[in-house]
């Protein structure tokens, strides 16, 4: 009977020690992650694909700007005033269209990519049991961090997998 009691006490002591150690270990585990927001954005596949798509349209407009620009220079060189006036107007118009398209596509890419990244980052944080993810972007919000807290590569892999597989 006495032996059983000693065994029981030993078992309880081991259990208490185990739980305490587990709690200490859990507290020591990192709960904060640092992510380079710029790199995350740049390496997100959706951003690369949207940029490539927008580039086609922008290159087309740019070609038109160059073409009208050359005609305008020719008209100026030949001192054809009527043509210069007409082409200068066309040049300004197409130039402003190019600027507008550039701004529009940039805004669209930014909005749509962050719309997709934000919930993915949240899901990643929950999966990794992180309490805080700090976005470092080179603007001074994080002055220094070593690799221990840096989760950028892991997060890039996670968001791209989620994007490609549609989960």
């Amino acid at each position: 009977m006495k032996e059983i009691r000693i065994l029981l006490i030993c078992f309880l002591m081991c259990l208490v020690t185990g739980i305490s150690l587990n709690m200490i270990f859990e507290k020591k585990q990192k709960k904060i992650g640092v992510v380079d927001a710029v790199r995350l954005f740049d390496k997100f596949n959706m951003k690369t694909e949207m940029e490539a798509k927008a580039k086609v349209k922008l290159q087309l407009l740019n070609g038109q700007v160059d073409s009208i620009g050359n005609q305008l220079n020719l008209a100026k060189a030949t001192q054809d005033e009527a043509a210069t006036k007409k082409l200068a107007y066309a040049y300004d118009y197409i130039r402003s269209e190019l600027d507008k398209e550039y701004t529009r596509s940039n805004r669209e890419i930014n909005e749509q990519v962050w719309k997709r990244l934000n919930p993915a980052v949240e899901a990643f944080g929950k999966q990794e049991k992180l309490h805080v993810i700090i976005g470092a972007n080179g603007m001074g919000s994080v002055l220094y961090n070593d690799d221990y807290y840096d989760l950028t590569d892991k997060l890039i892999e996670y968001v791209n997998k989620k994007y490609e597989e549609g989960s």
């Binding site: 959706m46 949207m50 990519v113 719309k115 994007y163 549609g166």
Partner: peptide, 9 residues
């Protein structure tokens, strides 16, 4: 609806 490229594997 401005939701960009959506994929499913």
């Amino acid at each position: 609806f401005g939701n960009g490229i959506i994929k499913a594997l």
